[in-house]
Design a protein around this nucleic acid. Structure first.
Lengths: 340, 340
DNA sequence: GTGAAAGCGCTAACAG
DNA sequence: CTGTTAGCGCTTTCAC
């Protein structure tokens, strides 16, 4: 194996010094165009490739940024990562990826690894399990850009991009009301997670706003899964709901399947709406009404927040910039009531 | 901002030298247990965090490996990345992620970035657009581990993990035959991509194996999308097929929707099977029979191939280790013919 | 078992 | 416009 070619080699060939070569390669203004072309041609000729480790070690900038997600297996996160990478890449940054698997310990390890790798910033979505936030505070302490997406924590005063889950719950419920449904049930989540609680609040407030009393009997608490959707629906059936707003699409799908098994007409007898617009939602029968979360946009906005933060000197001095994306109602067949 | 604490700080506090500290931190055998605890305690006390750039620059190992995929937006790749990251992370490696967006130029840029970042290896899935493979050869030339998954190129003689698309096409078709279907159509892809061609070959061979003549009229060429599935199905309908094997699930879904619109009973009149087991496939009505590709396992195997390669001295001397995963038939409702 | 010293490949004052 | 010099923070011979 031939030794790696460095700027020293280029300098030697050209009878100049490494500083000139370095500057030429970095398009420094104080270098003559002639020297630049000379250096670049020689670099190409020698098949030179910069060692970013050395460059970063010296300059203090890596142009790497860490992305911490619960799991790449979930389409939601893959989609957000896609959006982030696209924007960041256009701005010369590269991505280090770490999965927490929803585990606190893994999340901490991820942050430490990123910090040791001297990333220029971190974009993260907090694991369900996480109750202690010292690892995130450490990032702030090092004055490195930190941005949260989807799962944030307002006490940390960190920029974030989330969607308005409250509004999502509200418009989902409102849509059902406008379709003429009145006994609207909600399948929520047992876990005390902010996004689920917000959707629940939105549900309740929409009912109130339209003069419908909130009936706790019509609220079931599942564990965010298709199976749980089926079980909760079975329980709810005795309460005679005429519509179900499920906390997310898998739960909604479970509800849909249970109703079909029970011979209940959807949306004629009971309407259904979910949340998240999973990839299957538009393809099931009847197609599932749901709330779109704008995942790619979320990623793009998170990346922009990062870039903004990276430019600022006093990063965490003022109140953090928090972007709240609007949820979008996708009214499909499962909640479209036939004209009475 | 307080200056970063380095091993010099630890050495000074302990009245020793950086070499001792470095060795202690790296659990070098020639350091007394006593010194090790002393050093570690001090490191903790000073809130020391290793600078991996410096370590890597000196040692020549980064423990970073580059993953190059077409797009994180596609669930297939997110899932494979999940499998890769899990295994690699357990072995002390971290992941740099790059998306080619199916574009040759981006792919080349990704490889260059990885190389500049001095990654310890690269795991990649080739972009559709790529016809020139010099960037991959450069990785081999630098004697760095390179592993392909799903989309490989046998001429490059690089270890890979793929699934047996030929066999997938074969068992899908065989399944339809065993269900009693005889005029089995196939919706293939216009693009001359190996995986699609393999599925087509499998289809043809299965027919022949069961004494059914291949009828080119029953083969349509679409562009791998739901819409295309609908169009091709509309065309095929005049040829009176009694079953359709679609090149992948979106196409199969298009076929399914078209048939439902046309009032054709599935699977009674026409059976359908797809390929890929997309997340929606089990949830559509009727549930879609398909071929499972074992995505997470693919990622795990790719990671293992990498680890294996990383251990070898003469990496590309012998024939590359190519793992071919078995496709798994998922016989669901869309191809289950009622007993005649 | 520990220390001294060199240097990985690059950037960035400071000079000139 | 170009050269000299001094490191970035760490690992790793080679001594002792």
């Amino acid at each position: 194996m031939s030794r790696k070619v460095t700027i020293h080699d280029i300098a030697r060939e050209l009878n100049t010094t490494v500083s000139t070569v370095s500057r030429a390669l970095n398009d420094h203004p104080a270098i003559s165009t002639n020297t630049k072309t000379l250096v670049r041609d020689m670099a190409k000729k020698l098949n030179y490739s910069q060692n970013r480790l050395a460059s970063s070690l010296r300059s203090g900038k890596t142009y790497n940024i860490g992305i911490l997600i619960p799991s790449a297996e979930l389409h939601f996160f893959g989609s957000v990562v896609h959006g982030i990478e696209k924007v960041l890449n256009e701005n010369g940054y590269n991505i280090l990826l770490y999965q927490s698997g929803e585990q606190y310990n893994q999340e901490v390890k991820g942050v430490q690894t990123f910090l040791q790798s001297q990333v220029d910033g971190i974009i993260a979505s907090i694991a369900f399990e996480t109750k202690n936030f010292d690892h995130f505070l450490e990032i702030k302490k090092q004055n490195k850009p930190l941005v949260f997406f989807d799962r944030s924590n307002s006490e940390l005063k960190v920029p974030s991009v989330t969607i308005d889950d409250y509004k999502g719950g509200y418009i989902a419920t409102e849509h059902l009301i406008k379709q003429g449904y009145r006994r609207i049930a909600h399948i929520s989540a047992k876990q005390r997670i902010k996004i689920f609680e917000d959707r629940l609040r939105g549900y309740k407030d929409a009912l109130k706003a339209y003069g419908i009393a909130v009936n706790e009997d019509l609220i079931a608490y599942g564990d965010v899964s298709l199976e749980s959707g089926k079980e909760c629906t079975a329980l709810l059936l005795s309460k005679k709901p005429d519509a179900i707003f499920a906390v997310e699409d898998f739960t909604a799908l479970g509800a849909l399947q249970k109703l079909k098994e029970s011979g209940v007409d959807v949306p004629g007898k009971i309407g259904i709406i979910g949340f998240a617009n999973e990839s299957f939602s538009q393809y099931v029968t009847p197609s599932l009404s749901t709330i779109e979360q704008q995942t790619i946009k979320m990623g793009e906005e998170a990346a922009r927040l990062f870039l903004e933060l990276a430019d600022k000197e006093k990063r965490y001095a003022s109140a953090p910039n928090t972007i709240v994306l609007d949820p979008i109602l996708l009214a499909r067949e499962s909640s479209r009531r036939k004209k009475a």
